[in-house]
Simulated assay, not measured.
Amino acid sequence: MFLTYRRFRRCPCVQLITTCLVLSAVMVCWEQLDANVVSHVKSYSFRYLVNSFSSMNRSLTIPREQARRFSDFPYLLDHPDKCVGKDVLLLLFVKSSPENIERRNAIRSTWGNETYIQNNLGVTVKVVFALGAIQTKTDEPSWSRRSGVGFQDQLIKEDHLYGDLIQKNFLDSFHNLTLKLILQFHWMHSRCAHARFFMTADDDIFVHMPNLVGYLQDISSRGVTDFWIGRVHRGSPPVRSKHSKYYVSSEMYQWFSYPDYTAGAGYVISGDVADKIHQATLTLNASLHIDDVFMGICANSIGVSPQEHAYFSGEGKAPYHPCIYNQMMTSHGHVEDIYELWKTVIDLRVKQKTSGLFSRLYCTAMKIALLCRPQFFNTYPCKAAFL
């Protein structure tokens, strides 16, 4: 009734059909296998065996006159005096699209509220939003062009009210995120160079500001330098599939692996690193549109490596639980729930419920149950449960 191995060997026809089926399956899946397996094998081999990006640094280095085209855009909105006369612990740049006013307002009312931070945490944190320009096309109808101008007028009114929009005259799009990153480093260099730390974040991220401020105060008291922390990607290969928005051609980036970098959702560097990155952007080709990878290229050129922090999120959203909030730094993918989450994490009863020996044991068990599951691999790693 069942086909045994011996019978299988005696039936060439069955063997032939089985072989054809296997080969067909491999051919159908080959493109995905190549993208997900072969590229990673090449990447890790390059990263851990060759482990040299010196040729990359030389290839991407260009004259300053050419590099200037990535930063020489006029300001449409600016606040040069934002940091003047203040001891700034952290300059926090939020990457935002012009139309995301509700997200910006949510941040201003929650974790990015400078008044709350100053009054309740006792430090100065400056929160500003990095924007590009709104797209308007000359071949569009006149009413459409007028609506674009009107939207810029809305941004001007928003900025007049809050005084926290930093906008340059390049198109705000996914493929210009590297230009937006360069904007941030150039603005810090010229407007807020004395800030002890710099952070860049997406506008759908949640930052546990009390935890982050306490952590940075401790780091600052120890006089740390060459500091770069976040969710680290090591040995990541370029995406060669033209169907992906992360597609990078071999002509643009010819190597099998990217230098180590942190997820662009949110990471923190010390002021000395921010200054070195600014200097690197003055001589590197910034055509690569993936901003967190470009950050890794800049850091590699100056000899700075990222450090992993278990409670900096990647692309995933952290589980909702008091035991998680106790150590949370960032969590990604928050828009509608940001008000409720902020109200919950700053509730003093959360700290009280998670303090004490039995509470810590309980939280360890809960974090193991929450984090040591495959679906949370892109939020916090399993090891975070034991910290």
Rank of each mutant, 00 (worst) to 15 (best):
T19I: 14
A35H: 10
H40S: 08
S52N: 15
Y48T: 02
N51C: 03
T18R: 03
N36K: 07
K42L: 06
V26R: 04
L49D: 02
S24W: 08
F46M: 01
N36R: 10
T19N: 08
R47N: 03
F53Q: 01
N51V: 01
V28A: 10
S43G: 07
N36S: 08
C20S: 12
S45L: 06
Y48F: 12
F53Y: 12
H40D: 09
A25N: 14
V28I: 12
D34G: 06
V41F: 07
A35F: 07
L21W: 05
I17W: 14
F46L: 01
K42M: 06
L21E: 04
T19Y: 10
S43T: 00
T18I: 11
M27K: 13
I17A: 09
E31P: 10
V41A: 06
E31Q: 13
E31A: 14
S55Y: 10
F53R: 01
I17C: 06
C20H: 07
V38L: 11
Y44C: 03
A25T: 13
S39C: 05
N51E: 02
Y44D: 05
C20W: 12
S43E: 00
S52H: 05
Q15I: 13
D34R: 15
C29E: 13
S24H: 08
L23C: 09
Q32L: 08
F46C: 01
K42C: 05
E31V: 09
V41Q: 04
I17R: 02
Q15F: 05
A35D: 14
Q15E: 08
Y44L: 09
V26Q: 04
Q15R: 14
S24I: 11
Q15D: 06
I17L: 15
